[in-house]
């Protein structure tokens, strides 16, 4: 149990002709929230896409619980308990709210457990319950983000990768989402890797944080240390 849940070593990822990540090291402790911070274009989204198998790393290793995922297919990574909530949620607007939720847990193949998980999600996010049979296109931005998060949770993932959940949302909604992410760790023992441009919100719930700049890690410290480091904050985090 001492070993980290997610262990990334020397990760290089190319995006077309551009090297988007260079030698990234990252370890994410079980049951913690780790924030990935940095400016636009620092490589945060690329990191998540490499972790979930959407991008093939050029070199380096990714291990989940000691198992090598570096070149595994997306479908296999999902089945090992990694859920990726992409930027702006990625809910499928043509499907209903209930169908989106069901989709997130279908791969487990256990209908009764899936139905239970979906009911839990409705309890956790009441606005989704009211709109369960409506197309996801009718949801507001905040509700879509809730739906995307709930959909990821119906698969009961061990590791949740969340990409900029605060994007385009009102501060009050952001605060609620952040509180939910924190609760997932504290109460359900899930592990969260949170990519955020909104560093202040992310640091308010994170245990640790790394700061990316031009694809390289420039800091990896406890969240409180980074929040207290004026030089880092001014240079990379914009607050």
């Amino acid at each position: 149990m001492t070993k980290a849940l997610l262990e990334v070593r020397g990760l290089d990822v190319d995006y077309g002709a551009v090297r988007a990540l260079r030698g990234v090291d990252l370890s994410v402790e079980r049951g913690s929230v780790t924030a990935v911070l940095g400016a636009n274009g620092a490589g945060k989204t690329t990191l998540l896409r490499a972790l979930s198998g959407l991008l093939r790393p050029a070199s380096g290793t990714i291990e989940l619980d000691g198992r090598d995922l570096t070149r595994a297919a997306v479908e296999r990574i999902v089945r090992l308990g990694v859920a990726h909530v992409p930027q702006s949620g990625g809910v499928i607007t043509e499907l209903t709210v209930a169908e989106n939720l069901r989709l997130g847990g279908l791969w487990r193949g256990d209908r009764a457990a899936l139905a239970r998980r979906i009911d839990e999600m409705y309890a956790l996010f009441p606005p989704l319950a009211e709109r369960r049979s409506l197309p996801a296109a009718t949801l507001s931005g905040g509700e879509r983000q809730m739906l995307a998060l709930a959909r990821a949770l119906t698969g009961s993932p061990r590791l949740l990768l969340v990409d900029e959940p605060s994007l385009g949302l009102a501060p009050r909604v952001v605060a609620r989402l952040m509180a939910v992410l924190r609760r997932l760790c504290d109460e359900d023992g899930r592990t969260v890797l949170l990519v955020e441009q909104n560093a202040r919100s992310a640091l308010s719930i994170a245990d640790r944080a790394i700061v990316l700049d031009l694809g390289a890690v420039v800091a990896a410290e406890p969240a409180a240390t980074i929040a207290a480091d004026d030089r880092l904050r001014h240079a990379y985090l914009g607050f």
């Binding site: 997306v74 990625g90 169908e99 698969g155």
Partner: peptide, 22 residues
């Protein structure tokens, strides 16, 4: 469930893959 996966794969292939759909 199969129909749901078929529709998801047609509407949003990348999102569907992230939900474990082959």
């Amino acid at each position: 469930d199969l129909g749901l996966k078929l529709r998801a794969a047609a509407f949003a292939p990348e999102i569907a893959r992230l939900q474990g759909v082959r």
